[in-house]
Amino acid sequence: MRKYYEFVVEGLIFISGIASIIFVLLIFIFLLKEGLMLFRQVGVFEFLFGEHWYPISEPPRLGILPLILGSLWVTFGATVISVPIGVACAIYIGEIAPGWLREILKAGVELLAAIPSIVLGFIGLVTLVPLVKKIFHLPTGLTALSGSIMLAFMAMPTIVSIMEDALNAVPRGYREGSVAMGATKWQTIRRIVLPSASSGIIAAVMLGIGRVIGETMAVMMITGNAAMIPKSFFQPVRTMTATIAAEMGETVQGSDHYFALFAIGIVLFAITFVVNLFADMSLHQKQARV
């Protein structure tokens, strides 16, 4: 009796353990199956580098270059804004803030991560968008810049919390050794602590970027969603994620448009996969060395 019980428990745990892998595989297979159908009709090159996304004109034009560039611009902008602030914030929390303040700040950062993206998008729409419009004298505030700023808020918690872990993992002996030689706090942080935590910092930034690329709701609400090749941060852009979200409900199943949306999913999957891979590699590189 006991033997059967053990067997059942082990089996259940095993199934739960591999379930996540199976789901990823199934999702990936489904994505490929639907997405690759598109390429019976449309060339890969034409799809990736086509400059026009008119999915419901006749004949439809399914070039996603504006969408890829839209995603990249918004991501780039969000990275430029969130990385310096996030890194500085992590240094302050991890190295400088006194104990009680550190706890408050950490809780604050976690709370920021807990805000649903639709709420951030909504707040951005009613506060940030009019502000951007007014400051830069634009016809509309729904721009790549607004999207970047809002997404920077979403990348921050990821960057800060992972980087803070990386700083925490730096052995105390390094700091003591440096301070005992007469180095100031800032010299110690800049010359000893940051370089020793560098792989963790890179991983933090990468995961932050991964978060931004995959984000949908907030960007859909505040970037203006015009599928044009962006020429400046003050123009509306449309990201890949927003395109899928906005159009999936209205497309005919089995049409080229439908398959194209899945193909966008594949591109998105590939990009986030590569970003996460880099993050993972820089995390493990450190373990291999020490």
Binding site: P171, G173, Y174, E176, G177, S178, A180, M181, G182, A183, T184, Q187, R191, I192, P195, S196, V290
Partner: peptide
């Protein structure tokens, strides 16, 4: 100067470990 219980060279090159002091001062 202080020498610690566990050797704690900085995780940089041998040269930079020695050069660290002269350069911060």
């Amino acid at each position: 100067g202080m020498v610690f219980q566990r050797p704690n060279p900085f995780p940089i090159s041998i040269f930079d470990n020695i050069a660290y002091g002269p350069s911060i001062h």
